[in-house]
Write a protein that binds this DNA or RNA. Structure first.
Lengths: 153, 153
DNA sequence: GCCTTAGTTGCGACTAGTCGCAATAGAGGA
DNA sequence: TCCTCTATTGCGACTAGTCGCAACTAAGGC
């Protein structure tokens, strides 16, 4: 959920463009991240990587994620700690979005809005803050659970 | 950084009002949290609590913070992991605010805005989401560091 | 195709936070 | 004031994430 849009076609391209080495481990990790359809956590990423190739260490997964964060190619999410302390990751594609986490059913919704864009612009202008990353998460009850509850009594 | 404003005068009052026991450990922790002037982390809170009273365990600190979060009396912050993975806590006072974390100097700024309030309202209305907690954090460079850098070359 | 070398990896030990369980101690009633 | 009962605590073991260091290997030069 952050500000610039990546310019390179693939994550691997971005790595080599920055003079970073494309090791076997990184190649696997980057492919998995690129093809992921849902929010990945580090443990899941490690598992998928090991399924595909063998020798890869937990620390390498974390270090690779760290680099991708710093390059602004992925965003790190807490998802309001719905499933404990762990973090989730998603590729930074187009526009920043807000994550809405339902404490009742666990659903995660993504939300984008011109007002959100306006808010970021305001922070940059009024506060003189040069924005690198934005993370906005909301916890509560999704529309489905709200409706279900009001029907209940 | 969240939505409802607490109604009770002190955290201890809120505990008893909810039928929660006021143990010696909780009394100490709540007092420290109430009188804190800066963002506290769990380890700092534990240390301060042990300085004041003796027997208090790490787990109790985390459990007490958990309760306060659930009651909406404190907010949990990451501060963009400026100092590693740990969390910070602040009493929920008036209006929700955004935390701006400078990656260069480590300064934390707090920012509030009608646009932020409007955004939350929009999420509730358009998405039908019942908001419990909102966390918005921005990482980048503060105005001071931006100015310093532009002057540099 | 081989050498060199600096970036990267795995390992193991560490910090932050969570959880189950038995022991303890608030708080309300007698 | 004492008793009871259940919420709460401490403990120890666990998960998630980080870090220093020695071993390894990608990538560029010959």
């Amino acid at each position: 959920m952050s500000t610039a849009t990546p310019t390179s076609r693939s994550l691997a391209d971005a790595f080599t463009a920055k003079g970073l080495r494309l090791t076997a481990q990184r190649r696997v990790l980057l492919e998995i991240i690129e093809s992921a359809t849902s929010h990945l956590d580090a443990a899941g990423l490690l598992q998928l990587a090991r399924d595909r190739d063998a020798r890869i260490n937990r620390a390498t997964v974390y270090r690779t994620l760290e680099i991708l964060k710093k390059l602004g190619l992925i965003d790190e999410l807490d998802l309001m700690h719905l499933n404990g302390e762990k973090h989730y990751y998603e590729i930074r594609t187009g526009r920043d979005h807000i994550h809405l986490a339902c404490f009742e059913c666990g659903r995660i919704e993504e939300y984008e809005s011109p007002v959100f864009d306006q808010l970021k612009q305001e922070i940059a202008q009024k506060q003189g803050f040069s924005i690198g990353v934005v993370r906005m998460e909301v916890g509560g009850r999704c529309s489905i659970c709200v409706r279900a509850n009001s029907r209940e009594q």
